[in-house]
Design a binder for these strands. Structure first.
Length: 848
RNA sequence: GCCGAAGUGGCGGAACUGGCAGACGCACGCGACUCAAAAUCGCGCGAGGUCACCCCUCAUGUGGGUUCGAUUCCCACCUUCGGCACCA
């Protein structure tokens, strides 16, 4: 259909039409055989919660622009989509509405898939995955068994985070700051026997790996570093008097050990009972411990620091002074050894506690003389320090170590402790092992069997998947629903063949999402989780787009998985995501967060129906840089629509010329007119800028601005051209430069507005899809202009500008500048002291 | 409290390495077209002075500094938003 007729731009007609055609052609499938370079582009796997709003549309459009751009640049692009389909909200919905979790989940997926398609996204839908399908979770279970085989999965009793609202246990990462990551409830502490993955074995690798991720945002790396929380120090033993026991403490400040005036133990420290059993202190200590038992981490943190004396003394390994042992509310059992040496003179927390408990303080560090940054702690009238001095300094009152610097003393004391057999170097992490079992229904069953004879036995691989039974009583309050399904629970031991029971818990859904990017590589393979050759071809992900909320959740778990898989030689390299991009949010029109509860969400369907996908996409890319938030704006999107309508009319007005194919002869030697040269300059600078921006910094808002500028330039060129003769419909009547500009405009716009550009490309006589065309190349010659505008400053203030030939010499610019009246006026009666010239840009004349 | 990011017209934002501050768009005003409206097109649009014109002064959170020249670099402060918060 080649026609000069100006039909109306109706996105509601052309968008569904092209979406159907692309789908029919399977146009966006990644090719399995290709000598093109690969590009693996991925957006974080969405949870199928129901409706998508324009904030999600922004995220998917961002990825789609990059995918389409990279295809045009000649890459073999893998751009898949799938569903993180297991998870608690499905169970909540099941309880609330009487729907089966699968029903609820599948309905949401169908709805969201249709919404995402309506945006015109170029996913390879043939690779779609669903983590709740047995064909998928079979491999999640397989990976659990792999971890188990490597000794990385174990069951143990530990203090865990319990969300009282959701009635579930949470991994530490999922209870950051003492609150549930999903619902925000303050978590409680429970002592439970559960499955863990030994992510702590990989703490150093996870930490070191961050250094190589130079295309990750610094803040994400900082958050992971803080979460891992590596701390190098010394573990040091204090023998308990009158008891055959030692109390081991961990400290990074062994140099302050002569300042120890007490030992502080966590209430849950295993030695507490032995210390007080049979003594008069037993009653008060037990009362103190039981009062704290149910207090959450968050509650404890807000308490005034308190403690109770055990009546026991320990001996300082240096010098042998007796040290009272206290039970306190500020020492965490989970970290280090659950016991600390109290040095009130040099630690804020110990100071706070000791001041209130009236325990002595013994300063043993003084600021190094000449260190201007530190000063000794002020001393009160009673001679007690008023604050703790926590910096490094010079040791005093420290026996043979007095006079050493803190750093020297740490080294000397460590080696002395080693000689005495009372201590050694030690590294501790804030990171704890990943709790992966959940007493919930809607997840992958843990593939383990408990046999009375053989203990826990892994389900043999060939028996996978351990199918989730269709029906189980989901109450949310009675422990694992699977435990109430006898036909699921009763099984035989894979080892001895005797009767045994299955593990009733399911796996944390973060396990499903820790490896999904590999399943996309061979999504229908039922012999392996992924084909090794496919992994060699595609992994790692080149460009990963997702929200900052997963900085230490999904992103750290996935890195952990990948490192384990790398050891097994199942993946190339040891980091899964080379470049990470965190997109910003779309806020409500009044700058508030867009959320269902506020009722200010704008659904993708509605926005597409009203404005069209292309206008929605263009506006969302234009409204601000993709890493920042911006407010939704109904008038703003009308600007995008206007732009698209202008392009529609402009291109159709020249459709016949374009269809005549004069573009093939456009690179003729004919000398261009000044307006033609200016237009071509504009075209080629836009090609360069937009391409570099998408591949680099990704400030796509400036790309859209550049496209609008190009449109303005073309329109101005057309308006300034002599009226075409009445028979202008004759093909080839317009300037080749204009035709090049129009085609380039469409090509550059194609990743942003795929439907309108496809329609116009076809209407201007092209048979191939615009999305299969090559990204235009720019010509260096046209980036330069013959005449350049040079700003003239006097003493750094702009006083005019002159047009000069490109690369003119400074002297002639100065001479020309001096004749500009406003410059001349400023130079009047002054002495020129200096000239600063920036080539082709600016001349600053400095006068006295 | 600690760490990080950011403060630019009425609004969203641009200026990527120190070189014309406010690109591009929205809103608004005036005009054209129209019986009229919508749509569309043209012009204007930081503040103040002068206002016929050119032009001048001020202006990128505040105050200093470096520089011929600072939205950009340095110091201090204010505000906002994130993250962490007894991790010994």
């Amino acid at each position: 259909m080649v026609s000069g007729e100006t039909t109306a731009y109706v996105p509601q007609v052309i968008e569904p039409k092209w979406q159907a055609i692309w789908e029919e052609r399977r146009q966006y499938a990644a090719s399995e055989r290709s000598d093109k370079q690969k590009f693996y582009l991925l957006e974080m796997l969405p949870y199928p919660s129901g409706d998508l709003h324009v904030g999600h549309a922004r995220n998917y459009t961002l990825g789609d622009v990059v995918a389409r751009f990279q295809r045009m640049r000649g890459y073999n692009v893998l751009h898949p989509m799938g569903w993180d389909a297991f998870g608690l909200p499905a169970e909540v919905a099941a309880i609330a509405r009487g729907l089966h979790p699968r029903e609820w989940t599948d309905a949401n997926i169908a709805n969201m898939r249709s919404q995402i398609r309506k945006l015109g996204t170029s996913y390879d839908w043939s690779r779609e995955i669903n983590s709740s399908a047995p064909e998928y979770y079979r491999w999640t279970q397989w990976l659990f068994l792999l971890m188990h085989r490597k000794g990385l999965a174990y069951k143990a009793q530990a203090w865990l985070n319990w969300c009282p609202l959701e009635q579930t246990i949470l991994a530490n990462e999922q209870a950051e700051g003492g609150v549930c990551w999903r619902c925000g409830s303050v978590v409680e502490r429970r002592l439970l026997n559960q499955w863990f993955l030994k992510i702590t074995d990989y703490a150093d690798k996870l930490l070191e790996g961050l250094d190589a991720l130079d295309e990750w945002p610094e803040r994400v790396k900082t958050m992971q570093r803080n979460w891992i929380g590596r701390s190098a120090g010394v573990a040091c033993s204090f023998p308990v008097e009158g008891l055959d026991a030692n109390i081991e403490v961990f400290t990074t400040r062994i140099d302050t050990i002569f300042g120890v005036t007490y030992l502080a133990l966590a209430p849950e420290h295993p030695l507490v009972e032995r210390l007080v059993d049979g003594s008069a202190q037993a009653a008060p200590v037990r009362a103190f411990v039981s009062a704290l038992k149910d207090k959450s981490e968050l509650e404890r943190a807000s308490l005034r620091k308190e403690g109770v004396f055990t009546g026991r003394l320990a001996r300082n390994p240096f010098g042998g002074q007796p040290v009272p042992i206290w039970i306190t509310n500020y020492v965490l059992v989970e970290y280090g050894t659950g016991a600390v040496m109290g040095v009130p003179a040099h630690d804020e927390r110990d100071f706070e506690f000791a001041r209130d408990a009236a325990l002595p303080m013994k300063p043993v560090i003084v600021p190094a003389s000449g260190d201007a940054n530190t000063s000794p702690a002020p001393v009160s009238r009673k001679g007690l320090p008023e604050t703790a001095f926590c910096d490094d300094g010079i040791l005093t009152n420290s026996g043979a170590f007095s006079g050493m610097s803190s750093a020297q003393a740490r080294e000397a004391m460590r080696s002395k402790l080693e000689q005495l057999g009372a201590g050694r170097s030690s590294v501790k992490y804030k990171l704890r092992d990943w709790l992966v079992s959940r007493e919930r229904y809607w997840g992958a069953p843990i593939p383990m069997v408990l046999c009375p004879n053989d203990g826990y036995v892994p389900v043999p691989e060939e028996q996978l998947p351990v199918l989730l039974p269709d029906q189980a009583p989901i109450s949310g309050t009675q422990g694992s629903p699977l435990a109430h399904v006898p036909e699921f629970m009763h099984t035989t031991c894979p080892k001895c063949g005797g009767p045994a029971t299955r593990e009733a818990e399911t796996l944390d859904t973060f396990m499903c999402s820790s490896w999904y990017y590999l399943r996309y590589l061979s999504p229908r393979d039922d012999g392996v989780p992924w084909d090794l050759r496919e992994a060699e071809r595609w992994a790692p992900v080149d460009h990963y787009i997702g929200g900052i909320e997963h900085a230490v959740l999904h992103l750290m778990y996935a890195r952990f998985f990948y490192k384990v898989l790398n050891e097994e030689r199942l993946v190339p390299g040891d980091e899964p995501f080379m470049r990470l991009f965190n997109q910003g949010m779309v806020l409500g029109e009044n700058h508030e967060k867009m959320s269902k509860s506020r009722g200010n969400t704008i659904a993708i369907d509605d926005a597409v129906a009203t404005y069209g996908a292309d206008a929605l996409r263009l506006f969302e890319m234009f409204a601000g840089p993709p890493g920042s938030d911006f407010p939704w704006s109904t008038t703003g999107i009308s600007g995008a629509t206007r732009t698209l309508k202008r392009i529609w009319r402009l291109v159709l007005a020249h459709a016949l010329d374009l269809a005549a194919g004069s573009s093939t002869v456009r690179a003729n030697g004919k000398r261009l007119s000044a307006p033609e040269a200016a237009l071509r300059h504009s075209v080629h600078t836009k090609i360069k800028k937009i391409g570099e921006e998408i591949a680099g910094r990704m400030h796509l808002n400036t790309c859209v601005a550049d496209l609008m500028t190009l449109l303005n330039d073309i329109e101005a060129f057309v308006a300034a051209s002599p009226q075409e003769p009445p028979d202008a419909a004759a093909a080839g009547a317009s300037s080749p430069v204009l035709e090049e500009a129009l085609e380039t405009l469409l090509l550059l716009l194609a990743p942003f507005a795929p439907h309108i550009t496809e329609e116009l490309w076809q209407r201007t006589g092209h048979s191939r899809s615009i999305h299969e065309e090559r990204w235009p190349a720019y010509d260096e010659r046209w980036l330069k202009q013959d005449l350049v505008s040079i700003v003239i400053q006097v003493n750094g203030i702009r006083r005019g500008a002159i047009e000069m030939p490109h690369a003119a010499d400074e002297e002639s610019i100065f001479v020309a500048a001096a004749t500009v009246p406003t410059v001349k006026a400023q130079l009047q009666g002054k002495q020129v002291r200096k000239r600063v010239y920036v080539k082709d840009r600016l001349l600053n004349i400095v006068v006295s």
